[in-house]
Design a protein around this nucleic acid. Sequence first.
DNA 1: CCTTGAACCTCTAGTTACTGGAGATCCCAT
DNA 2: ATGGGATCTCCAGTAACTAGAGGTTCAAGG
Lengths: 156, 156
Amino acid sequence: MLGIGQLSAETGTKVPTIRYYEDIGLLPEPERTVGNQRRYGQQQVDRLRFIRHCRDMGFPLADVRALLDLSDDPERSCASADTIARHQLQEVERRLASLASLRQELCRMIDQCAGGTVADCRVIESLADHAHCIADRHTTPAPTEQHVEPTRRDPA
Amino acid sequence: MLGIGQLSAETGTKVPTIRYYEDIGLLPEPERTVGNQRRYGQQQVDRLRFIRHCRDMGFPLADVRALLDLSDDPERSCASADTIARHQLQEVERRLASLASLRQELCRMIDQCAGGTVADCRVIESLADHAHCIADRHTTPAPTEQHVEPTRRDPA
DNA sequence: CCTTGAACCTCTAGTTACTGGAGATCCCAT
DNA sequence: ATGGGATCTCCAGTAACTAGAGGTTCAAGG
């Protein structure tokens, strides 16, 4: 049986995060010592690792929850798991595309900056230059997108 | 002079967002009608467009604030604008790289799923399979990274 | 056996960048 | 004068944690 600190070290999850997962019902309430401290068994360790791996893959917690439900019931068809994963892949590809074009614009911006004062700085100027994005904006009613992936830690 | 709704339409910014920018001091308090309603002039329109464009480029609001300060004072050197932009570019490239590898893993996961029940689903299995990420985790103390870009709306 | 200090407990509040709703008020056209 | 849409303020909620205060508990050393 591990204490919360050990579980934290074992899975690379911060202690408050573990308690947070418990709060929102992703992790079941663990056993406690007489002194009210949490003790975790192997099952919990595995479950938390599953969660973390999902998060590393960019799945939002709602998806993680769905995937956990699925994995809790091995008899069910895995079709939904597949669907969730495919959806996530699409999401990732969408983001890749948008980041790529963003990169381009940033590069262009930076390349054009010759130094000097703000008055003739291309970076500022091209940020102030908006014609195209306004046009885009008005031609596309834009189904507002919300979800963002947290890149929660930096394994660099 | 525009009302807040017109400004909203003009810049593709939701009305509450405009008020929010005012609250946090990105937009100055506008004039008001006798009836206490906001009226905006061209300057404000430009400023809001600048902000939106920055946001579209993925700059966090703190950076937007810095860029606005710079553009308010055209005599200053544009070096800091350049620095901010370069930093943002790095950030974007970091994210691109991480998304690309994520994409790979998702693809691999999905390709291996042959259907059937959860018991032999590769998606679930490979999410449960954690050996490598744990290893990674322990070799890199990881300066926890925080900031996340919100991709605030979807011009797709 | 007792003490000390690290690890643990709960609870609250803060982060980023908005978004949504309630309930009241205003503006403009008919 | 009136009706309805736009606007006002304020409060709360979103995702996914993170941080701090102030108080216990555990394990090792003396």
